[in-house]
Amino acid sequence: MLGLGELEASVMDVLWDAAEPLRVRQVLDELNRHRDLAYTTVMTVLDNLHRKGWVVRDLENRAYRYRAVTTRAEATARSLREVLDSVDDRESVLLHFVSTVSEEESDVLRRALRRKPKKR
């Protein structure tokens, strides 16, 4: 994801995969299946993600529970939008992108474009 460091992205993946908001300890336990992180490290990352607007937190029994503000799909779409907004030649970028999509992805794009109302 644009704007996220590697650990921030890993924390977001845990939150996106969760069925409910998680406490720091729950995020830590999930992340530590593949690495060895300190509780304070994960707490700091979650605090930074909250400050950046990626997560919201609710206080429950003296501990925060964290959840993602947007879905993974919405965040990915926002990243794609930021990439397009950062280049001068959007047409060229879009044409190169379209040349890489599968037939199935092409069908999805066509359907989405047919449903999109035209701006006036």
Rank of each mutant, 00 (worst) to 15 (best):
R111F: 07
S102D: 00
K116S: 14
L94W: 07
S92K: 13
L109C: 04
E104T: 15
S106I: 07
L95N: 08
S86P: 04
S92M: 07
V108S: 09
K116I: 11
P117S: 06
S106R: 12
K118H: 10
D107L: 12
E105N: 10
R111P: 01
S106P: 01
V93C: 03
R110D: 00
V87F: 01
T100V: 03
D107V: 13
V83M: 10
P117C: 07
T100N: 04
A112F: 05
S102Y: 00
D88E: 12
S99L: 01
T100C: 04
A112C: 09
D85F: 06
V101T: 14
V87R: 01
D88T: 12
S106H: 10
R111N: 11
P117F: 02
L94R: 10
K118E: 11
E104W: 03
F97I: 13
R115Q: 12
D88A: 12
V98D: 03
P117E: 11
E103K: 10
V108F: 09
V108H: 08
V98H: 03
E91H: 02
A112H: 03
E104V: 13
V83E: 08
L84W: 05
S99I: 00
T100M: 10
L113E: 09
P117T: 02
E91D: 07
S92I: 05
S86G: 12
D107I: 12
S106E: 11
E103M: 05
R90N: 07
P117V: 09
V87L: 03
E104N: 11
S86V: 11
K116W: 09
V83F: 07
R110N: 00
E104R: 14
L94N: 02
V101C: 07
D85Y: 05
E105A: 14
D107F: 04
